[in-house]
Each structure stands twice: as C-alpha cells, then as structure tokens.
C-alpha cells in the first residue's frame, strides 16, 4: 500500500470535525485541556481514519487493534473522534462531563464503546498496552491465533514521560522485542506548568527510546500523510516502535497555539465563535 492509498481528505475532515466537536464540548462543560486535544487531533484522525484495524459496529471484535489514550486528559478529542466514526451516537458528546452521563473529563472506558482503557493518571497506559500486546501475541482457547497479531497503540504526552513507569515498560518491551506495541508521543513541548525543555528536558528524546531498544520514527504530528506512513513503518521490525510526533499545543486555532494557558482555559462564547470560524475556514 502506498502513500496514494491514504485517504487524506477523509482524515483531514475527521480531524477538523473532531476539533470542532471537542471545542464545543469543553466550552459547554467549562472544561480544560483543549490545547492537549488539538495537538493530538491529527494523529487520532490518522489512527481512526486509516491505520487502526477496527469495526466501529463491533467494538469488542477480538482481533481489533487497540488504542490507549494514556494522556487521558485529552479525552474530549478521543470521544469526538469515536463518535464521528460511529462507535456511539454523536449526541453523547453533548453530555461530556455532565452529571450522570458516560463521558467523563478523563477517558472513561466503562459503558463507552471504543474506549479500551480508562486513563487519567499519567504513566499507566504503556504498561497496560504492553500487557495487551503480550496477551494478543499468544494464542489460547479464547483467542485463537490470528495470522497477524493485533497491534496496540498507546498515545503518551511528553510530560507523561517524566513518570518512571513509562520507562519500566519501555525497558521491558525493548528487551523482549514486543513488536506489536507502538507508542506515540504527542510531543507538543508544553507540559502542565511550563515548557518541557525548562522542566525536565527530554532531549535527546529519540536517542533515549532507541537506547531502550525501540524503533524510533520522528514525524510532524500534523502531517497526515507522514503520520500514516510512519505508523505503517511501525511494527514488524522485530521490536517495539515509538512515533515521536512533533506537535503544537492548541494546533488549529491561532490564539491557542503553543500557549500554556490553553492547557487550562475553557473558551468563552466569543472565543468559541472565533475558533470555530477559523477551524471551518
């Protein structure tokens, strides 16, 4: 399959629609983390629009690829993407963070088709993904062997890589050459209380993963063709892969881009209108 097979228009549409939905969700809920959603939006559109082997109408299909949003605070963009792909009704998005509704502010798996794992505490997704990858590599009565093992994709934030448990999993996955595990770091360079480079500089970031035995692919996380091509390269190299996706926090709305403020702030009605106009233009 070549680059020409990548449905770029469809992916771009999915990313744009998901951004618009997520923006309205966080505005309605007066919630945070829209900047973290927007840096991840294009990668999620690539995954759900092209890369993942999934069946939205059969979310528990045993041979599906798994996706874990380890940076669970970007739940709004995941929910929006899943709804747009038909995992659950779009109307559910209106109840984001609302009393008694299924979609919580951090990713909730219970009762939400398509969300594989509940997350929100950083550093949990990669170990769980490693366990899933191990479980899916093995055949038993309940999971008959398939020709192509399902893959497990785990999206981490850059700040999340401060957590030691990330590196515990990275160490073991590399040493055991778990090649159906793919990590994706949404490297937007801003973490909770400042710039990554000022808090704990991760660089040389790729070299760290490579030293742990991972295939490292660096990519512009907003270039759909490049992300899809990179994810196709991932896996099959006899070792786990990490996509270091260089992204921009708040990508898509100029006043949000590369601003720490939009890790926290919820858009006002005026800001919402302006942002939607920009996203839809």
């Amino acid at each position: 399959m070549g680059v020409d097979d990548i449905p770029l228009a469809e992916i771009a549409g999915l990313a744009q629609d998901a951004r618009c939905e997520a923006l309205q969700m966080v505005h309605r809920a007066r919630a945070s983390h829209i900047g973290s959603c927007f840096s991840a939006a294009d990668i999620l559109a690539c995954l759900y629009g092209h890369v993942l082997r999934i069946r939205p109408a059969q979310p528990d299909w045993p041979d599906r690829d798994r996706f874990i949003l380890s940076k669970g605070h970007a739940a709004a963009i995941l929910y929006a993407t899943l709804a747009l792909k038909g995992f659950f009704p779009r109307a559910w998005l209106d109840g984001y963070c609302a009393n008694g509704q299924p979609l919580g502010g951090h990713a909730i798996a219970a009762g939400v088709p398509g969300v594989e794992v509940s997350t929100g505490s950083l550093g949990h997704g990669l170990p769980i993904g490693l366990g899933m990858a191990l479980g899916l590599r093995r055949a038993d009565a309940s999971h008959p062997k398939v020709a192509n093992h399902p893959r497990v994709y785990v999206m981490l934030s850059d700040g999340e890589c401060d957590e030691g448990s990330v590196w515990e999993a990275a160490l073991l996955a590399g040493a055991r050459r778990i090649d159906n595990l793919v990590a994706i770091v949404d490297y937007n360079k801003i973490q909770s209380f400042g710039r990554v480079a000022d808090i704990i500089d991760l660089e040389p970031f790729g070299a760290k993963w490579a030293a742990f035995g991972w295939q490292v692919i660096e990519v512009d996380g907003h270039d759909h063709g490049a992300v899809c091509a990179a994810l196709r390269l991932a896996g099959g190299a006899g070792r786990p892969s990490v996509l270091i996706a260089h992204t921009v926090k708040g990508k898509g709305v100029r006043y949000m881009e590369d601003q720490l403020l939009w890790h926290y702030r919820s858009p006002t009605a005026d800001e919402l209108r302006q942002a939607l106009r920009e996203l839809r233009s």
Partner: peptide, 14 residues
Amino acid sequence: QNMIGIAAGLALTG
C-alpha cells in the same frame, strides 16, 4: 508498577 499494569493489560485480553 509495570507488573501490575501488564497484569491489567493481559486481563483485558482475557
């Protein structure tokens, strides 16, 4: 920590 996360992941695959 990794052990318990892996345990959860394995359990999620049955």
